[in-house]
Design a protein around this nucleic acid. Structure first.
Lengths: 150, 150
DNA sequence: CCTTGTTAGTTACAAAATCAACTATTATCC
DNA sequence: GGATAATAGTTGATTTTGTAACTAACAAGG
């Protein structure tokens, strides 16, 4: 055993490694949109994600955002502080459980959310345009599966 | 104008935003394999990528790795130093152009590469197993397209 | 009630990524 | 040939992330 003279039959090209491809595609496809929330609002990625979760689902707690978006609580905490400084959201203590903070976008936050959502939508359409509609649908389905979002 | 009473017709769920899905899928699918090169060899992701490029393509320069893998030169530089410390690669000055360093895996580096490639292959098969063969092929093709790797 | 455990969120410190400036070498072109 | 620019790679300062320990509030069992 272990004479293993030939790695030939293996034929596994690490370039095809799904996590690698996924990372490359994710980075590449994030770049262009990243410029928008960075240049236009000075936001970091996590801040944009928090904003988008609040814009999309309405009032939430930091915990809930973390669970949904799979973001660690320290990142959320810092993002919430930044968004608060910039007057994009306000916090309010939950009277029933005073450990909890309910987070809600201000109207400035909502405006930023709508603006960025519009850009995101257009950008998404551009990416989707690389493929047929069926292919794109399948892609999203597969990505959700890989991300355990289904 | 701008009376814009209804955002209804928009119907764009940021959860479907391709860069978001790609990032979530990339992070999720990287986790398990990350544990392996981290626990088994104490490597960082960039170090693993450099290793895998050298293992896959043979001798290369830092520049070439950076271009192929889209990694910034400072990250490469530091990864190469770490891999050199751990005796996974050796550098040699190119006599034709003495700015350039040719990088090559040592036999220890090659062994690590082969080991990790085996794990990667098995993990890739596991991920691919979530879908049909045609779907997986299409997925890879689409990801390469999104990553501008085609 | 009052110890023990759990949960939401923050903070401090270490590790890593990013960005800019730097060294050394080669290429350009007057 | 000698100034100027370009290139390969490194280093240092700043920013961001990750890890762990922390505070404050609640929960449960005795």
């Amino acid at each position: 055993m272990t004479q293993d003279v030939s790695d030939k039959k293996d034929e596994f090209d690490p370039q095809d490694f799904l996590p690698y491809l996924l990372n490359r595609a994710a980075e590449e496809s994030s770049l262009e949109f990243q410029q928008v929330y960075k240049d236009r609002y000075g936001m970091l990625r996590t801040e944009w994600r928090v904003l988008f979760h609040l814009g999309n689902y309405g009032e939430m707690t930091a915990k809930e955002i973390g669970l949904r978006a799979r973001i660690h609580k320290t990142k959320i905490s810092r993002s919430v502080s930044k968004l608060e400084e910039r007057r994009f959201l306000v916090r309010s203590r939950d009277d029933a459980d005073r450990r909890v903070e309910r987070l809600a976008l201000t109207s400035a936050g909502q405006a930023a959310y709508r603006d960025l959502r519009k850009v995101a939508q257009a950008y998404d359409a551009k990416l989707a345009g690389l493929f047929s509609e069926e292919e794109t649908d399948l892609l999203r389905k597969m990505l959700r599966r890989l991300a355990h979002m289904d």
